[in-house]
Amino acid sequence: MSTQPPSPSRTDSLIEYPCRFPIKVMGAKAEGFVHAVTTVARQFDPTFDAASIELRESKGGNYLGVTITINATSREQLDELYRTLSTHPMVKVVL
């Protein structure tokens, strides 16, 4: 009789909460893009500090990478933040 360890459930996580968690958001370099990302970040982390934002332009200058670091309190919070950012019309990719 072999005993197998239980399969990990959705609630298992390698992340220990609360923690600082960086998220990279990419979109077209357009007026209001950084503000839009910041607004979403504050919806999920009221303590979000805009001074922590890191920006990186694409080689051609058409796209902008915005790295935000939020205070993550749960997997549900992160999942919903990723969903909200991913569906924003100005956002192309969320990592």
Rank of each mutant, 00 (worst) to 15 (best):
T73G: 03
H88K: 03
Y17K: 10
T67F: 08
I15E: 01
I23G: 06
I70C: 02
T73S: 09
V40Y: 13
L55Y: 07
A72F: 06
E16W: 03
I68A: 00
T87C: 13
L55F: 03
S7R: 12
M26Y: 05
P5D: 14
N71D: 10
A41S: 15
E31Y: 03
E80C: 08
T47K: 01
V91H: 07
T39V: 09
T47P: 00
S86G: 14
R10D: 10
T67V: 15
S74A: 12
A72R: 06
G61P: 10
E31P: 02
P5F: 08
L64K: 03
A72C: 14
A36K: 13
L95A: 08
T84L: 04
Q43R: 15
P89D: 13
G27V: 01
R20F: 11
G27C: 01
G27L: 00
F44E: 09
S86T: 15
V91D: 01
Y63T: 08
D49Q: 12
M26Q: 13
Y63D: 13
F33V: 02
L81D: 06
M90Y: 11
A50P: 09
D79Q: 12
D12W: 13
T47D: 09
Y82V: 07
D45F: 02
T47G: 04
T84S: 10
A36I: 10
E31V: 01
M1L: 10
A50L: 00
S13L: 08
I23Y: 03
K59E: 13
S9I: 12
R10Y: 07
E31T: 04
S74R: 02
G61H: 11
A30K: 14
V66L: 10
R56M: 15
Y82G: 00
A30M: 12
L81A: 04
P8D: 01
I68Q: 03
F48K: 02
R56Q: 14
H35R: 14
H35K: 14
T38Y: 02
D12E: 15
P5V: 07
S58D: 05
G65A: 15
S2W: 13
A30P: 05
D79E: 12
E76M: 08
I70K: 02
G61T: 07
M90L: 15
V91S: 11
I68L: 12
D79H: 09
G61C: 09
M90T: 13
L64V: 14
Q77P: 02
V25L: 04
L55R: 07
T67W: 09
S52C: 03
H88C: 09
E76H: 09
T39L: 08
S9Y: 00
N71S: 11
V94K: 05
T87P: 05
G60Y: 12
T73W: 01
V66G: 01
R42P: 01
R75H: 12
E31R: 02
K29S: 11
A30G: 02
M26G: 03
E76K: 11
L85S: 06
K92M: 12
E54C: 00
N71P: 00
V25N: 05
Y63M: 07
T84V: 13
S13E: 04
T73L: 06
P6C: 10
L78G: 00
T11V: 10
D49F: 04
K92V: 13
I68R: 00
A51Q: 07
A30W: 05
G60W: 03
L64P: 04
Y63A: 08
A36V: 09
A30F: 00
R10I: 14
E76C: 05
L85Y: 11
Q43Y: 10
F21R: 00
A30R: 11
D45I: 05
